[in-house]
Each structure stands twice: as structure tokens, then as C-alpha cells.
Design a protein around this nucleic acid. Structure first.
Lengths: 216, 216, 216, 216
DNA sequence: TCCTAAGCGAGACGGTACGTCTTGTCTTCCA
DNA sequence: TGGAAGACAAGACGTACCGTCTCGCTTAGGA
């Protein structure tokens, strides 16, 4: 339909390559520019909805020429997603700094504890990020990261008890989906409960199921 | 300079009213037009991504003037969401027609069974709908419908067994989030498993938790 | 509902400024674009009525994006009027190149001669320009230019002969209105008379009045 | 270009005929409707510019259905022009009621006197009418009416004095153009002078020419 | 030290979608 | 049967944004 929008697959690849190359060589200046753009974006997302933000808004906030934007990123989504690369670092850091007392990291579904606390600390930020059209992108990213943790954990803990009804990936999906559903609800309502309450409720349901809640 | 007069706040309100009124009164012609637009939209969503579809595309597919679109809907999202009103009907119908054998509807988390089967039957359609930017809107709608069912069921089955750790809404969020997470994964991969397998795995995890899967 | 944000009064001012500034600074490219648009417009006016010409028609003919149009002009009228800036140049040039023989420019109402000849030469063009809704705009512009000439001339020639019944501006208006009325009639009928005939008839009436034509 | 706008000549004729027929049969109701529309239009013209008035505005002001408009007139211009039919009546009436003292109607260019007075009386109305895009239409109509008077008068008064430089139509055009030019200027500035002053200045220039104003 | 290449700001431009407005037609329903 | 009501197709309008491009400026890093 749109001529502008729809580059052939190949053309897009090529320019992505160029951009990627620029990304890896990484002059000091280029790096500064990219960082400024990332910062500008999250700054703006906090105060208004993701898709009410134009690229011009971002470049203006970053004090950068609009054409410069296109020298580094293909897209607003591209900018967002690449900025999310740091997320993994933040999360692992949160995990490590959250020195759990007794047994800590050995607890099942350990991620729930430090993640919930992390979300609480930054809840203004995360609430903004998850609002609007940016939400799905960010939630997907977080899901991806958590899935990795859960997958590893489940693989490690798997008991050899024989007949395993479901493929493990279902359990991973189940757990992560349930967790995100609970915490987005929690954040949306203003994070009224403490992280501990959320963590505990989640873990109870995840480990013990609904069974105990129900009659007969 | 410009002859065009922008509408004041009040005028704008009024025409929104008219739109709404038109929506409810529903002349024969108007209804036909709206239906054509809904159909056109889902037709297009199947074949290409939601936000690569312009309003002109929709009206052209529906064989309707572009301005007519704006006489009925404010937005592409509006069109989508209002079209989703029918969803509830479809789902309830699916529930009722899925006459379960023994005890059927009395089974816990009964929704999982007929919903999964319904998704399987229409999986081409649902996969398309959940892809792209339309996904969140549709998933939210489905979550909303399922939450209603689950909330009712949990309220009915709640055992009086005393200390209830979490507010019931958490359990609702948990279950529905877990379910949608599992089935979107399933559909995305092409719905390789049978609905029964998915249903069983989900119900097992939901009712019994991960506990049994794990060592110690 | 609508994401689009209408500009406030101030922003609007600013972009008008930018337009104006662009108009005066005149990059090479911008100038080329503007010229192309002017040319396209008069090209189209010749072949069809002014207000059956859409802006899209103009930009297409000028091989220019429609939005580019709005970067330079606010309006179709704006384009036309600003294009008419050149008119003054053309007219003065016509005046100078029309080297009148004896005494030439010292003749009273000298403008009538070279103007009429100029109209005759370009009569196809002027006839088209004066037709339809563009007419008044163009005629007003020409009147303005001629008024200037006449005003100067009358001021210079004014005899001090005492009691002057009418403000001189009435005389200016009278002369210019009469002239334009005569020549538009002449052009509309296909410019059948020679410019000399028209010039002479006009000058006779203007200088001597109807008196001599009439009985008693 | 536009399919809607550009009916073939024949189609337009046909529907004009139908409309015309309706016009001549002239039911009582139909006549009332037409009158209401005329009134509504001039009412609106007084308060805002002709082409900022939409047909919907007119029909609303006339308390008439929009489709009814098209049953009587093809166009906004059509409505205006046909409403101007009354103008002739008004003018002749103004002429007759202006019983001039001595010699009255036998004075040369008699129209100037009563017309100028008439304009003065209704100058708010005429100023509004002549503003904007409606101006040319109305001015043309008035010119047409005045031309008729002048043409008759000149034919009657023509002295047989032989060599007549210009075709009489030029004189008609000259006089009427000059007159309208003077009075539009006068009205535009707020009709500051008395009608007598304007009349006298005009008649002096028209009958005696500029000659006497100028040196040598 | 120069100078040459890259990063960059500025902004013109083509393209396209948007949401609004108006026009003229047509159909239905009412008095 | 004439008119009111209003749905509709068509399409222009002015705005916003996008992605591309070209032009110079500046600012290193290498000759």
C-alpha cells in the first residue's frame, strides 16, 4: 500500500546492517547520541502516552537533529526495544542486590520476590511504561527475561517422578503469564499491597494451586 | 485565512452523541453499514497487520464512503472494540453448545474446556486477531469476559475455610493471566496440541500448582 | 479520542512566521519549488476555472508534494496573490520597453497606451486570468498598480486652479475603474478592436468627458 | 476532475428545467420556501462572508430541509442570482420615488443621483453584499441594470454631430465602470461623504472629463 | 599542522493518513 | 404529493508525521 512504509525486505536489511555496524563500532559521540535518545524516550513516556510521542518530540527532547535519529534507529519501536537491552542488566542486578536471608535464591520461584520489590520501588516508572501501546513491547520483554529464569529453575528442579502431563514450556508460560497478570493489575491499581503480600499470594497460588481455596 | 471552522467543545460533544444515538437506534441502512465495516476490518486483519490497515482500506473493502466511517465510529480502535461486543455472545454460545457430558458445567474452571475448543476451531482467525497491535485490545476483551466467569465461579465455590491469604481478585487475575498466556503461546506455535491436552495441562497447574512437579 | 493535537494560537503564529521567513530568505530549492507552483497555477487557470482547481491539481502539475504546498503558502489565494507580485515588474517593464515616440511618457494618462498594448499581446492569458473567481483578485491587483501610476500623475499635473470639488482619490478611482471596465469588456469580446482604438476612445472619454457626445 | 461537481451539460440542463418548471408553476408553498431561502441568505451575508456560508447554514436559517434547497436551486450562486431578480424592482422603485425637483429625470446621467442615495440609505446592506466572493456577482448585476439605463439614455441623447470615435458600448462601459468604482470605494470607506458630493464629483468627471483638472 | 572523513543540525521534500467539512443524490417517512 | 430528515459517496481541505535527502558546520584522527 504505502510506498514509503513498505521497503522490500532486502533494502531494510541493508540499512539495518549499516545502522547495526554503526552501533557496534560505537564512537564516543554516537554512543552519547544514542543514550540521549533512550533517555529522552523514557522521559517522555512517563509523561504521555507512547504513541502520542512523535519522533520529532524525542529528538527535540534529546537535543538532536531528527535525521540523526534515523542514522541510529529505524523506528520508535526500534529505539524502545534496543533501550530495553539494559533491562536485563537492571533485573539481574536487582536479583543480586536483593540478598535474601535464609536460603534465599534457593527458594522456588525466587524471581517473584525480588522482581516484585523492584517493581514496587520503580512503580511510577513501570506503570507509565506499561500503559498505552508501549506496554505490550515492554511486557513481552520482561516475560522473556522471566521465562528464561523460570525455565532454568524448572529444569533444575524437575523431579524425575515419571509421568509428566505437560511439556515444561507450558508450565513456564503458565507461571510467567500468571505473574505478569497479577503484577500489572497490582501496579495499575496503584501498588496498594506490599510486595511481600503480592509475592506470597502469587507463590501460594503458583505452587499450591487453587485447590485449597475451593470447596470439595 | 482558513475557511474551515474547527468545532468547539460543545459541538464535538453533540456529534459524539449523535453517533452514539445512531448506534442504538440503528436504522436498517445504518446497521448494514456498520456491519459491513466490522466485517471488512476483521477480513483485513486476517491478511495484514492491524496498523498497516488505513481507514481508507477498511471503507474501500466495505464499499462505503470514508466520511461514512466517521459518521459511525470515531476511530479504528472504536470500530474494533465495538465489533468485539459480539464476542461475548459468541463465547456464551460456545459455552452453551459445548454440552459437556457428566456434570459438565459443574467442573471447576469449566471455561477452559470450551474456550480452548472454540479457539482451536477458529484458530486461524484468533491467531490473526491476536497478532500485531490489535492483539492487546482483543486479549484484554477476552480477559475481561473470562474474568467475569472466573470471578463468579470462585465466589460460588469459595470454601469458608478461614484465613484467606489473598484478595480473590488476585486469584482471578492469576488464573485468567495464566490461561491466556498458555493459549496465546499455543496458538502462536500453530495449535499443535489438542485442545484437550491444553485444557488438562492448564487445569492441572491451576488447581494443583507446580508443587507436584518439583523436587523436595 | 483523537490523538491529533491541534495547534494553539501561538504555534500557528510561529509557523506562519517560518513561512514568511522562508519566503524572504529563499533557499535555492525553496525558490524553485515556489516558482514551480506559481507556474503550475497559471498554467491551470488558463485551461480551467480557478475554483475547479484543487490544491492537489496544482501540486501534481508542479510535481511537488501536497504538504510542500502548505509549507510555502496558506492558501490557493495566497499562492495566486503572491505570484502576482511579479505583475508589477511585468507592467513596469512593459511601460519602459514601450518607448513612445514624441513626448511619450509625458502624455496624460500614459498608462492606457502601453497597458492596452500589453493586454492585447497577452490577451489569451489575461482573459483566462480574469475569468471566474480568480478575476476579482487579479483585477484588484492591477487596479492597485494602475492607481499608483494615476495617483502620481494626477498629483504632478494638478493645476492650481483653485476650487477643487472632489478629493483626488475619487478621480483616481474614476479613471482606473473606467479603464478596467472598458478593457475587460474588450478582452471578453475577444479583443476585436486594436489597442490604439481602445486607448484613444478611453482617453477621449477620460479627458473630455461625455459632454461632447451629447446633445445640448 | 470531480465526478460529483461536473455534470454533463445536458444533465444539468435537464434538472434546471425541472427546477425552472417548479419555479414557474409556483405553488404557494413553494414560493414561501424560496422566499425564506432568499431572505436567509441575505441575512447571513450581512453577518459573515459569502463563502463561509454553507448551504446547510442557509437551510437551517430558513428552517427548511437541506434537500428542499436542491429542489429549488442548483447552487448557492443560483440562489443569490435569482434573488437578485428583485433588485431591478428595487432600483426602479428608488428611481421613481426619488422625485427630482427641477427637470429631474431629464438630467444627464440621472441614475447617479438616485442610485447614490439609495446606496447611502442601505449602505450597511450593500457594503456587506459587495464584500467577499458575493461582491462580483452583485456588482455585475448592478452594472447590468445601470448599463441598460445608460445605454438607453445615450442612445436618446446622441447628437448627430458626425464623427463618433468610439462605439457607444465603450461609453456605456466607461461610465458604469467609473461609477461603480467610485461608489464601492466610497462605501468601503464607510460612506463618509454625502450622496450629493459623490454624485456631483462623479457627474463632473463623467461629463467634463479630467481635462479641467489638469495643467495645460 | 593541515585535512579529511564522520557525526551531526537544519530543514526541504514527497508521501500518506487523518479527521473534518461540504456538496449533491437518494430514500424513507410524514402531514 | 411536497417537504423534512438524514444516510450516503465523493472528494477537498489543512494538519501531522514519517523517512529520505542534501547542505554545511564541527570536530576529531591520521597524514
Amino acid at each position: 500500500m504505502s510506498v514509503t512504509r513498505r521497503m522490500g525486505r532486502n533494502d531494510r536489511e541493508k540499512s539495518a546492517d549499516r545502522r547495526e555496524a554503526a552501533g557496534s563500532t560505537g564512537d564516543r559521540r554516537a554512543l552519547r547520541t544514542r543514550t540521549a535518545l533512550h533517555r529522552a524516550l523514557i522521559g517522555l513516556i512517563v509523561e504521555r502516552d507512547y504513541d502520542e510521542i512523535s519522533i520529532a518530540d524525542i529528538t527535540e527532547a534529546a537535543d538532536v537533529g531528527r535525521s540523526t535519529f534515523y542514522a541510529h534507529f529505524t523506528d520508535k519501536d526500534d529505539l524502545l526495544r534496543r533501550g530495553l537491552g539494559h533491562l536485563r542488566g537492571h533485573l539481574l542486578e536487582a536479583r543480586d542486590s536483593a540478598g535474601g536471608g535464609e536460603g534465599a535464591a534457593s527458594r522456588t520461584l525466587w524471581f517473584s520476590r525480588f522482581m516484585t520489590e523492584h517493581l514496587k520501588e520503580q512503580h511510577q516508572l513501570y506503570r507509565a511504561l506499561m500503559r498505552g501501546r508501549a506496554g505490550p513491547i515492554i511486557i513481552d520483554k520482561i516475560k522473556e527475561l522471566l521465562s528464561e529464569l523460570v525455565r532454568t529453575e524448572l529444569a533444575a528442579r524437575e523431579n524425575g517422578s515419571g509421568a509428566q502431563a505437560a511439556p515444561p514450556e507450558i508450565a513456564v508460560r503458565f507461571v510467567v503469564g500468571a505473574y505478569m497478570s497479577v503484577v500489572t493489575w497490582w501496579l495499575d491499581r496503584g501498588a496498594r499491597e506490599t510486595p511481600e503480600e503480592i509475592d506470597q499470594a502469587f507463590r501460594e497460588l503458583a505452587l499450591g494451586g487453587l485447590g485449597t481455596l475451593l470447596r470439595s
